[in-house]
Design a protein around this nucleic acid. Structure first.
Lengths: 235, 235
DNA sequence: TCATCCTATGGTACGATGTACGAGTCAATC
DNA sequence: GATTGACTCGTACATCGTACCATAGGATGA
């Protein structure tokens, strides 16, 4: 279960922080641990996060971490949710239609994950933290306001979720290895006898990922809650 | 580098299987290694595959594996591609329209991954093996025949890929932990003040995953290549 | 004042993992 | 008989998560 956590640390005491840097790290706290974990994950990827490295960066002993955190899984959960906060659409957008609001939230979601590429592949296999639940709630509420019935709601939400997750995970893992993609496309070329079509369209190169994302999203939204004007496929 | 691989193994000799374990296992081979790895992954999940366990099941020493395989990553790559073979649609379907063919292939793809739940989350981060490339080629060729231009092709393919991957990864990880989902929904109920809408629609329970998948897929396909009778947006 | 307790830290140690290294076996070939 | 190349595997090591336990210091009560 959850280790006890200091709700409030009144203590400021005589920690000199401002002058000499020699010995004095600030005390451990959940916030510092999570923030440092995110740094480490951003810098080194999922495999780069080890409890020892984390402790090193925090200037603490390894086992001290375990007073604040259950185990390494817990660090992942917290780092993940930390990265998925949503502050809501800007004022300008707020008054606009539901479709704009939804697209804003989903693109922000995707953007947040791509800024921390380790997060995308982590999310599906982990218990849903408050920030994700908040996004799902917002999505539900907005769709509900747009006329989607409760009966159709879960289908709509999960389809959108699936789409966002797939797009983001794919993009994030290809992102990490552009060289690999080049190599793969080269390999493809040498095998063009077997894969003529995808070789011809250069499937593995030069893709407009943002455009792809937006495009498919439009189709899905059209399907769930058609636009009045019945606009077709843009582009 | 790839280790050398025995093209032919003449030795068949005497195979015992499960009774006395003394000496007589069949010789190692890539095929046997991959098949056993898949068994192990199916039984224990991604974390359950260790080189030692794999060797145990094969009745060999751990290091013997490394003559056939570069490293553990290689085992993953091979197991993954092994699971993704596609034999094509049955004869009855073959003559039918492109839409049926595509849906058949994508549902088969999803089905294969769900039969081996570890495979879905592995796929995006790994180099594309021949079986996956084959599926992509088939998809391209079919869409091309359906009138999708080369310019629109990559957008269509990647949207479908994203959707299939997202749906399958999500389903596979929820699948593994129905209890967790119950627990999550319970937690949700206790927090219904914060998440009233998703609590009301019981988002985390009782979902018709197959239906969701098929539904969103229809919307996407309508978007890319509208049906003549046209439910979706005209282009 | 001292004794006690809670919060918080971290050293040591253990079992598990992937795999480098190099010695071993055996059949085919010269 | 000697050599070679395909294949097997025991040993050893670095690295990981973390259980266990000793410790320190402030707060509290006597």
């Amino acid at each position: 279960m959850a280790a006890k956590r200091s709700g409030a640390q009144s203590k400021r005491s005589h920690r000199k922080k401002t002058d000499a840097p020699p010995r004095s790290e600030p005390p451990l706290s959940l916030e510092r641990i999570v923030a440092t974990a995110v740094e480490l994950l951003d810098a080194q990827g999922v495999d780069g996060l080890t409890m020892r490295q984390l402790a090193d960066r925090l200037g603490s002993g390894v086992m001290s971490l375990y007073w604040h955190v259950d185990n390494k899984e817990g660090v992942f959960d917290l780092a993940l949710d930390a990265v998925l906060e949503y502050r809501g659409p800007p004022q300008i957008v707020e008054a606009q239609d539901w479709r704009t609001a939804i697209i804003h939230m989903l693109e922000d979601w995707r953007g947040s994950m791509l800024r921390h590429p380790w997060s995308a592949s982590l999310l599906p296999s982990r218990t849903l933290g408050p920030n994700i639940l908040g996004r799902l709630e917002l999505l539900s509420k907005t769709l509900s306001g747009a006329g989607v019935t409760d009966a159709d709601m879960n289908v709509a939400i999960w389809s959108l979720w699936n789409y966002v997750m797939g797009a983001t995970i794919t993009r994030a893992s290809f992102d990490r290895s552009d060289d690999d993609m080049d190599a793969a496309q080269q390999r493809l070329t040498s095998l063009s006898a077997h894969y003529p079509t995808i070789e011809r369209t250069r499937l593995l190169l030069d893709n407009d990922w943002d455009g792809v994302f937006r495009n498919g999203l439009d189709f899905l939204l059209d399907g769930f809650a058609p636009r009045p004007g019945g606009v077709g496929a843009p582009r």
